[in-house]
């Protein structure tokens, strides 16, 4: 019974955290420009939100390694791409021009 209560408490807390991070993102969206610092923050926010859903909502934290890794890697790669695209747009445009 105690374990059930603590798992409910944890999920409630994580939901509040996700909503807080979303509202913070909305605040960032209202800023006139996006600098490097805010791009990194947004990428980190996405990584944290993704990880919470994968680990706790989908319950993959202690699951099969391959499934867990595939899902977790997604939320390392996309945030990393967000930062790389911001840092090296010309170079990436050059590499991807036919």
């Amino acid at each position: 019974m105690k374990a059930e209560l603590s798992q409910v408490k944890r999920i409630n807390y994580l939901w509040f955290l996700l909503i807080g991070l979303t509202l913070f993102s909305a605040f960032m969206a209202e800023q006139p420009t996006t600098g490097f610092k805010s791009v990194v923050i947004m990428a980190l926010v996405l990584a944290v939100k993704g990880r919470i859903i994968v680990d706790h909502f989908m319950e993959l934290k202690h699951s099969h390694k391959i499934v867990r890794t595939l899902m977790q890697v997604y939320f390392y790669v996309i945030p990393a791409l967000i930062i790389l695209i911001y840092l090296f747009p010309d170079q990436i445009a050059k590499w991807t021009t036919l």
């Binding site: 993102s25 996006t34 947004m42 939100k49 993704g50 909502f57 989908m58 967000i82």
Partner: peptide, 23 residues
Amino acid sequence: MALYWHMIDLAWITIFPLMYVIR
């Protein structure tokens, strides 16, 4: 169904910063 719904949620939390937040 729960796993599938969480996947739909994951897609949206990625779409949101890309389309609405990051300039």
